[in-house]
Design a protein around this nucleic acid. Sequence first.
DNA 1: TTTTGGTTACACAGACCTGTGTAACTAGTC
DNA 2: GACTAGTTACACAGGTCTGTGTAACCAAAA
Lengths: 196, 196
Amino acid sequence: MAPPPAPQTMKERILETADKLFYLQGIRAIGVDTIAAEIGISKRTLYNHFPSKDALIAAYLERRFVHARSSDKPPAEQILATFDSLERRFAAKDFRGCPFVNAVAELGPQDRAVKKIAIAFKESRRVWFRDRLTELGVADADALATQLVLLVDGSIAQDLVRDDPAMARAAKEAAKVLLRNAGVDVGGGAAKGKRS
Amino acid sequence: MAPPPAPQTMKERILETADKLFYLQGIRAIGVDTIAAEIGISKRTLYNHFPSKDALIAAYLERRFVHARSSDKPPAEQILATFDSLERRFAAKDFRGCPFVNAVAELGPQDRAVKKIAIAFKESRRVWFRDRLTELGVADADALATQLVLLVDGSIAQDLVRDDPAMARAAKEAAKVLLRNAGVDVGGGAAKGKRS
DNA sequence: TTTTGGTTACACAGACCTGTGTAACTAGTC
DNA sequence: GACTAGTTACACAGGTCTGTGTAACCAAAA
């Protein structure tokens, strides 16, 4: 269960450090010198592993692209658990928004490569939601999945500027309403009614 | 009603151009040289009007901070119209996300000044929603207002990476469900039920 | 006309950036 | 021991950036 003692390769160490600095401080704000210095290697070594900073940026984003997995818990629970995990991440003080959105924001629209992977990531999450909703027998799973990712990305953006983990809880409450409205049982009463 | 023929001041011309370039290409991506060149003035003139690039950035964000006004239309309509206007803006090809979120994303967390104005903007929009909801007699206007801004920011983030104006429509549909759930009449049937 | 305020052209300091070139060093391997 | 692969230190080219200094210029006001 514990990952192997990790005889971490040089490439991995570079990526790990680039990840930390790029994500926390911004891609444009960090030079390759800084990354090399942080690890304690020479800039030359870094360039021996990555042909350019662009390649390093691409690898950084690829590495951030973790595909969500589905557990054996009930789909509705899985969906709502997404927002709980979001809240935990917001509470951590090394959270700084969605790396893909940030990358698109700071690298601009002309960087096709970055945009492509960002789109892929967003779509993968939407599909994950959709599949869970389909399992639940929701009629228009596609539309509802889109609405759920809006709540996810909205809470991320809000937390980025406000540093308020409660945004995740607000998103979860909204998600519950949307799910109930689609006929999904999420506990705590039927669709309508502001009773208590 | 029409604004005066605008004997635009130098300062205004600089701000206007800075706005266009900062917003479309990114704050870090644009140098003061570029802005001056675009207007056809010397860099010296620019620095005669703004003491530093930071000051220009601050002024750029201040200028973007337009307070939403409320019309005399019914509050529910006003709320939903927000998403229509969002969709129109998404469709325009010079839309590139929320300038405040983008600024925070690319300038990093240490830039207190930028973060402050970004927070103020986000909060002003939340308050606008809340006030409309209070007019409607919604019980927990605060909570619902937060959920609505999540939908707004979520659709903006999604459109930024996907260039898909339909995100605004999806947000609007979700907003309708949330409003109905709070007892607001938004036309098209009562709260629950997927009847057509 | 003279003065004055804003402007221009242009050079430049000082910093930082990406990326390369090179010679020396330090393992491990045959 | 000899060979090899990866690494290091370091200089440097060539570019960009912010911000300043300076002398000339131009137009409108006094």
